[in-house]
């Protein structure tokens, strides 16, 4: 009996460690600038999920090297929908890559590590993300993480549209909306607090949302540009997907303004 119990405890411990490690891996991808070399080196020894994260960050580095080309803008990038760069990842690289700020990365050529057509792995990935969100404290940090998850969903959506897997793309769109609604709820609760600190936090979230909107617009364009060669039914299916995707900026702007007005009138 004792043996069984200790075996069970050991198993739980192992699962916790792996989950935490994967969550950390995602955090590395999202908040790369804040993570130390040491952590990243440890990550290279983890399971294959982490290697996928490493793959992503590797691509980020390559994208950064091409930063001068980014000025050509999202609109131009959208014409190159089919040209997704595939980069080999060596497990030893992410330690260096993790220090690059994720915000400056050109995302258009990124591919998601796991896509919704792989139901089990995708479910696992999202479960880990939820855990990650649960372990994140602070409203603006939560919102930031929510936006990062939303961004991952957009990449998945784009990948699924490229592969003409509309059902899987639909799942990504649904999950994207969940993330955005989560962010909006965080903003709502910031608004309820109605103080200067909340207003500051809200401004931070707004900046993140603006960046997110730019990415969203890029992916919108990219998805639209993929519609050539589709039959009318498929084109409409794709439009339906785009209709479903929430654009958060407008809503958040209004809320931010309301809070600003409240704060000012309170100060008087």
């Amino acid at each position: 009996m004792k043996k069984t119990t200790s075996l069970f405890i050991a198993l739980i411990f192992l699962v916790s460690v792996v989950s935490f490690a994967v969550a950390e891996g995602n955090a590395t991808n999202l908040n790369a600038a804040n993570i130390s070399d040491e952590k990243s080196l440890n990550e290279t020894n983890l399971n294959s999920s982490l290697e996928e994260t490493a793959n992503d960050t590797e691509k980020n580095l390559n994208n950064l090297e091409n930063e001068t080309n980014e000025a050509q803008g999202i609109a131009e990038e959208s014409n190159d929908a089919a040209d997704i760069e595939v980069v080999d990842a060596t497990p030893s690289k992410p330690a260096v890559v993790a220090q690059k700020p994720a915000e400056t990365v050109n995302n258009s050529d990124e591919t998601p590590s796991v896509t919704p057509d792989n139901t089990f792995m995708w479910g696992l990935k999202r479960a880990v993300e939820r855990l990650d969100l649960l372990l994140t404290f602070g409203k603006s940090a939560k919102a930031q993480k929510g936006l990062a998850h939303a961004r991952e969903r957009l990449l998945e959506l784009q990948a699924m549209v490229s592969e003409r897997k509309f059902d899987a793309a639909e799942k990504a769109a649904f999950a994207y909306n969940e993330s955005i609604i989560g962010v909006e709820n965080v903003v709502d609760s910031l608004g309820e607090r109605d103080d200067e600190k909340s207003a500051d936090e809200l401004k931070q979230v707004q900046q993140q949302v603006q960046k997110h909107e730019q990415e969203l617009a890029g992916i919108h364009n990219k998805i639209k540009s993929e519609s050539s060669g589709l039959n009318i039914e498929q084109q409409n299916a794709m439009t339906n997907l785009l209709i479903s995707v929430i654009s958060p900026e407008q809503d958040l702007k209004v809320k931010a303004n309301q809070i600003e007005i409240k704060t000012k009138s309170k100060d008087k």
Binding site: F174, N177, E178, I181, N240, I243, S244, I246
Partner: peptide
């Protein structure tokens, strides 16, 4: 219907 669902955040 999709647009209505989005506008009113019926996803969740």
């Amino acid at each position: 219907i999709r647009l209505a669902e989005k506008e009113h955040r019926l996803n969740s």
